Simulated assay, not measured.
Amino acid sequence: MSNGSPLQALAHAAQKAALSAAMSLPPSVQRRLAGSPVVLDGQTLAVDTQLMLKLQKLSGDPPIETMAFPDGRVQARVQTAMAGGKQPIGAVRDLEVAGLPARLYTPRARVSVAVRQPPAPLLVFFHGGGFFFGDLDTHDATCRILAERGEALVLAVDYRLAPEHRFPAAYDDAVAAYRWAVEHVEELGVDRDRIAVGGDSAGGNLAAGVALEAARSGLPCAFQLLVYPATDATRATESLRLFGAGFYLSAEFMELANDSYMTEGLDPRDPRLSPAYADVPEGVAPAYVCTAGFDPLRDEGEAYARKLSDAGVTVELKRFEDQIHSFFNIVGVGRSSRAAVAEIADRLRAGLAPRA
Rank of each mutant, 00 (worst) to 15 (best):
residue 37 P to N: 09
residue 92 V to H: 05
residue 95 L to F: 11
residue 55 L to D: 08
residue 39 V to Q: 15
residue 106 T to P: 06
residue 68 A to K: 03
residue 91 A to P: 07
residue 111 V to K: 06
residue 122 L to K: 11
residue 118 P to M: 04
residue 102 A to D: 00
residue 90 G to Y: 12
residue 74 V to T: 14
residue 80 T to V: 05
residue 40 L to Y: 07
residue 96 E to Y: 03
residue 35 G to Q: 00
residue 119 P to L: 09
residue 32 R to S: 08
residue 61 D to Y: 09
residue 109 A to C: 11
residue 48 D to G: 00
residue 90 G to T: 09
residue 133 F to S: 02
residue 122 L to P: 02
residue 105 Y to F: 12
residue 71 D to W: 01
residue 53 L to W: 03
residue 64 I to M: 01
residue 67 M to Q: 13
residue 67 M to R: 12
residue 100 L to N: 08
residue 124 V to F: 09
residue 62 P to Y: 07
residue 60 G to E: 02
residue 71 D to K: 05
residue 116 R to V: 04
residue 103 R to P: 00
residue 32 R to Y: 06
residue 53 L to A: 02
residue 131 F to Q: 02
residue 46 A to F: 04
residue 93 R to P: 00
residue 77 R to I: 10
residue 76 A to H: 03
residue 31 R to C: 04
residue 67 M to D: 02
residue 84 G to K: 04
residue 74 V to H: 11
residue 57 K to Y: 11
residue 81 A to E: 15
residue 104 L to F: 11
residue 131 F to H: 15
residue 33 L to S: 10
residue 75 Q to E: 12
residue 125 F to C: 00
residue 94 D to I: 09
residue 49 T to H: 04
residue 87 Q to A: 01
residue 47 V to H: 01
residue 39 V to I: 13
residue 94 D to E: 15
residue 56 Q to W: 15
residue 99 G to Y: 12
residue 114 A to P: 01
residue 71 D to R: 01
residue 31 R to H: 07
residue 41 D to S: 14
residue 115 V to I: 11
residue 33 L to G: 13
residue 122 L to A: 00
residue 101 P to H: 11
residue 75 Q to A: 13
residue 89 I to M: 10
residue 81 A to D: 15
residue 132 F to I: 12
residue 68 A to M: 08
residue 127 H to V: 11
residue 46 A to S: 14
residue 131 F to E: 00
residue 56 Q to D: 10
residue 83 A to Q: 08
residue 121 P to E: 04
residue 107 P to E: 08
residue 37 P to W: 05
residue 110 R to Y: 13
residue 92 V to T: 14
residue 70 P to I: 06
residue 39 V to K: 14
residue 44 T to V: 11
residue 65 E to N: 10
residue 103 R to G: 01
residue 114 A to V: 01
residue 108 R to T: 15
residue 101 P to M: 02
residue 72 G to H: 05
residue 128 G to K: 02
residue 39 V to R: 15
residue 97 V to W: 09
residue 43 Q to Y: 11
residue 107 P to L: 00
residue 131 F to S: 06
residue 44 T to Q: 13
residue 42 G to E: 12
residue 94 D to K: 13
residue 128 G to S: 06
residue 80 T to Q: 10
